[in-house]
Amino acid sequence: MEQPLDVPELAASDGFTLRPWRMSDLQLVREASEDDYIPLITTVPSQYSESAGVAFVERQWGRATARAGYPFVIVSSGGRPVGNVGLWLRDLGQGRASLGYWVVKSARGQGAAVAALGAVAGWASRDLQIPRLELYVEPWNTASVRTAERVGFQREGLLRGWQQVGDERRDMFVYSLLNAEP
């Protein structure tokens, strides 16, 4: 049997750090569940309860155990958990992995997403030697577009009706970062 993935702690820019999920992160799950958008695009529960929060954290652990990917908590310089970034390995056999991220409303605009995405993308390219990293962003989400582009991801095109979000199929921009790029 293969060993679970070891989710490391990573230093990010601007004092942010990344670490594995802990049960002490339930307040982060609670705040994320109150967001209008995060539960639509993730497995964060839309109605928070302690059992739903515990199940969410356990799902993050399960992703590493199943070798599906690396889920990280984004932690501010003051030690407060403010979001999530994940590196997902479903297409690793084809030389690519995807990333996703979210930051709770109370911590937006402070550089957490850029710091976290940059740290994971750098680690995935440098240490894991993944040739191609991808992420998908809804065209209206200008903050996420800016985040991807600030980290160095390049927009490749529009995927029409690419992903189910809530009750509808939505278009997504596809972004990539190649290992050979700076």
Rank of each mutant, 00 (worst) to 15 (best):
M1C: 10
L5Y: 09
S13N: 13
S13M: 10
S13Y: 09
T17R: 11
R19S: 05
D25G: 08
A32S: 13
D36L: 14
I38F: 10
P39Q: 11
L40G: 09
I41Y: 09
I41S: 10
V44T: 08
S46W: 03
Q47F: 14
Q47D: 15
S49M: 12
A52D: 08
G53F: 07
G53D: 02
V54Q: 15
E58S: 14
R59Q: 15
G62F: 13
G62S: 15
T65N: 12
G69K: 06
V73T: 04
S76N: 07
S77E: 13
G79P: 05
L87K: 05
L87M: 11
G93N: 15
G93H: 10
Q94G: 14
R96I: 06
R96A: 08
A97M: 08
S98L: 08
L99K: 00
Y101V: 03
Y101P: 00
Y101C: 01
V104C: 05
A107Q: 07
R108G: 00
Q110D: 12
G111I: 02
G111Y: 02
G111Q: 04
G111F: 03
V114T: 10
V114A: 02
V114N: 01
A115T: 05
A116V: 06
L117W: 00
G118E: 05
A121M: 03
W123T: 02
L128K: 12
I130N: 00
E134A: 03
W140S: 08
S144E: 01
V145T: 05
V151N: 02
V151T: 04
G152L: 03
G157Q: 05
G157N: 08
L158D: 11
R160Q: 14
W162D: 09
Q163G: 09
Q164W: 12
V165C: 00
G166A: 04
D167S: 12
D167K: 09
R169A: 09
Y175I: 00
P182T: 13
